[in-house]
Amino acid sequence: MVYLIDFIYAYMCTIGFAVLFYAPKDSILKTGFSGAVGWTVYTMMNNFSDSVVISAFFASFIIALLGEFFVLSKKHPITVYIIPAIIPLVPGFGLYYTMLSVLEKNYELALQYGSESLLIAIAIAGALTIVLSLNSYRKEKKKSLF
C-alpha cells in the first residue's frame, strides 16, 4: 500500500519533469511508468539494505532495461525514456546541500554530502552504461554473424 502511494507520487513527478525537459508527447506516459517503477524498486531496496548507493544502482538498472524495451518501437532514442525517469534518484539535492554546507563553513558535512552525491551519480551512470553498452555489443555481434 505504501509502495502504491510512492508509485503514484513518482509517476506524477516524472511526468512533470518529462514536460520540463520537452519530452515528445507520446513518450511521456512510458517514461512516467519507468520512473515510477525505478523509485518503487529504490524504496524497496532501501528497506533491505542500508546503502542508498546500491538501491540507486538497482533502480537505474531497471530503468535502463525498461528504456531498452520502449526503444524497440523505434520512435525515439533511449535518452528520451531515461533522463526524466532517473530524476527522482538523481542527487540534485545532495549537490545543493554540499555547496550550502561549504558556504556555511561546515566542511565535514560538505564532505559527507559531496561524497554521497558523487557515489550515487556513479551508481546511476554505471548501471545505465552497463545495460546500454551490453545491448549495443549484442547488436553488433548479431550484425557480424549474419
Binding site: V90, Y96, A121, I124, G126
Partner: peptide, 18 residues
C-alpha cells in the same frame, strides 16, 4: 532546486566519463 537540474548534469558527466 531539481528543476534547475544539477543532478542530471552530474549523472551525465559521470556517464560521459565512463
Amino acid at each position: 532546486i531539481m528543476t534547475m537540474v544539477p543532478g542530471v548534469a552530474i549523472t551525465n558527466a559521470v556517464h560521459d566519463s565512463i
